[in-house]
């Protein structure tokens, strides 16, 4: 069993951090890898990236946004509660190397996924420019950590309540104009990754994105997570989750993420209703 040792709410309670005891996974995990969690007997298998790991303590940290039934159920778990199942580390680790100047662009909870990669790139001696964004100031997460993990942090909000007024892509464009950026890592909502990739393609800058396809097993056994990359079908859970942003068919990914929209709504409403009753 996988006990929650630390729990913290962020971004007005829409995002939750859990530090979980999982010694075997903590020992092996590398930046860019994820775990699959299942809260209880009837639960769904949910993939979440490890935002941090502590091999000595034997813990992993996840940071997730509450978007539906399963993440709402996760949010209800308190310190001392346990996840029934945690499986990992899954996925191919990020290939980190020294290339010069890099830009790490994160939107929403994508910042949690981006953080260990950003830190890894800095540790290797790259000059790291980080750009993070959220809809509004209260939803911004991990600003301090991203500041520490980069040389130059730029913040933006869609509504201008904090930092630059506008999208991360606006700031990225400025950076691409001025700096000799060798690599862009863009992680966030699908439309954001799509526009980041479109922009960097114009500048011919290599771009990594992390794809959050729907998954079941996470070991390449079911094909649920298939994505089109460079016209070929890949399994996000084993071939990814990171891919060359210039090759990804984001429109297909966005459509496939909607596969269970109706069912998800039904399950979430039922859950909220039952919460009210008890």
């Amino acid at each position: 069993m996988f006990e929650i040792l630390k729990r913290q709410e962020m971004a007005d309670g829409t995002v939750v951090l859990n530090e979980i005891s999982a010694p075997l996974i903590a020992k092996k995990a590398k930046p860019g890898q994820f775990v699959i969690l299942k809260a209880n007997e009837t639960g769904e298998r949910i993939p979440l990236t490890m935002a941090e790991t502590d091999p000595k303590k034997g813990t992993i940290t996840i940071i997730y946004q509450v978007v539906g039934k399963s993440t709402a159920l996760f949010k209800s778990l308190q310190v001392g509660d346990k996840y029934q199942d945690v499986i990992g580390p899954l996925g191919t680790p990020t290939h980190l190397e020294k290339v010069g100047t890099v830009a790490c662009v994160g939107g929403g909870t994508g910042v949690a996924v981006l953080h260990p990669i950003t830190r890894g790139l800095k540790e290797l001696g790259n000059h790291v420019i980080a750009i993070i964004g959220a809809r509004t100031k209260d939803l911004l997460i991990l600003e301090d950590k991203m500041k520490a993990a980069s040389h130059d942090l730029r913040v933006c909000t869609d509504d201008g309540s904090y930092g630059h007024h506008g999208f991360v892509t606006d700031v990225l464009k400025e950076v691409l104009e001025k700096e000799d950026v060798k690599l862009v890592v863009g992680i966030g909502p699908v439309p954001m990754m799509k526009f980041v990739s479109k922009l960097t393609a114009e500048y011919g800058v290599k771009t990594l994105v992390s794809l959050n396809a729907i998954m079941v097993d996470g070991t390449g056994m079911c094909g649920c997570c298939r994505v089109s990359v460079g016209g070929k079908t890949k399994f996000a859970c084993v071939d990814g989750p990171e891919f060359d942003g210039h090759q990804v068919d984001f429109d297909e990914l966005a459509q496939r993420l909607d596969a269970y929209k109706e069912e998800e709504k039904r399950a979430y409403e039922k859950y909220l209703h039952e919460c009210k009753l008890s």
Partner: peptide, 14 residues
């Protein structure tokens, strides 16, 4: 083949 509603048997049965 990547349209929504097309499953591998592994996924469907799992």
């Amino acid at each position: 083949e990547n349209l929504i509603g097309i499953y591998s048997a592994n996924e469907y049965l799992t």
